[in-house]
Amino acid sequence: MMPRPGDAAVTHDLPLVEVDGLVKHFPVAGNVFRKPSGFVHAVDGVSFRIGRGESLGLVGESGCGKTTVGKLLVKLLEPTAGSISFCFADASGDEAPSEPVDAATLTGGRLRDFRRQVQLIFQDPYGSMNPRRTIYDTIAEPLAVQRIGNALDRVDRVAEILTLVGLTPASSFLFRYPHELSGGQRQRVAIARALVLEPSLVVADEPTSMLDVSSRTGIMSLMEQLARGLDVAYLYITHDLAVARYMCDRIAVMYMGKIVELAETEELLRHPLHPYTRALLSAVPVPDPEHRRDPPAISGEVAAPVDPPPRCRFYERCPQATSTCESSPHPPLEEKAPGRFAACYEV
């Protein structure tokens, strides 16, 4: 299950996505007649890279901007600033990377081709399917839009992928409506819909958070197994470190629109550098009734990221904050050790 080190190093070194200085601001209460009173800095200068077939975890509290990063990556939102560029494998299946594609320039037919490579699995398995369309319609829609095969080929194709995601016998699911399926089954349909085009990157926005615990592991191992088989890279968005540990090669920790730490999964979990990451880890429940929990290292709550002061976003809650932290701008994400990035003056 865990990535094979050598293997991973080779394929993951071929970059798939390069995100540079991504910024997304949302105006607060503005309309045609009124100027916005401020901007929510949902994503504020985020940079990272995802290799081919790699899965990167994006971890953080609610409202830290992780979903916005996901939506920017799949072009459901347009960034305020910054760039995203993709390097897809050639259509011929050649391993050599093609010319990098700047996501901002994609429109019309080129955007449609892009959709073939980058897909999204939604958090909500209930709302993400049109209630008036059958499972067949839902999964075949990407094929129809991308003009792949005729209606009959698509039936076979949909039946194949339903079998692949474990909804068997496929023929008994084809012409059901979403409301006739359980949450776990619907999420399998959502996975099937995202993978039916054989994309290079799938952004998974907390795909298990709305499922009950019993179907969670099934969905996660399915996604893992499909990723290995289809060579899909994931951006796995979650607030659950245990899920991230299971699914991801590397983890990026976000706080108020910034990435504060980024490292290989086990490294990050064993030796967290950033004080926020440490606080997150100390909050993970331990299945031991005798376990004595240290008092939380940080207090307070996440402030609303409306026009935040320029200093370190974590300053107000940081146990290690110094006068440097107060007077300097937000620390850059620096490589503190090989492959270990953190944004903190005190590390």
């Binding site: 799949v74 459901l76 999204l120 049109n130 990407p142 839009v145 991308q146």
Partner: peptide, 25 residues
Amino acid sequence: RPFIDAARMTGGGQFRIIFVHIVPN
């Protein structure tokens, strides 16, 4: 509702989203 975003993710145009996903509902 999220299924409209899901429809955009397939690469479907505005016409498709309006008449295949919004109008039937």
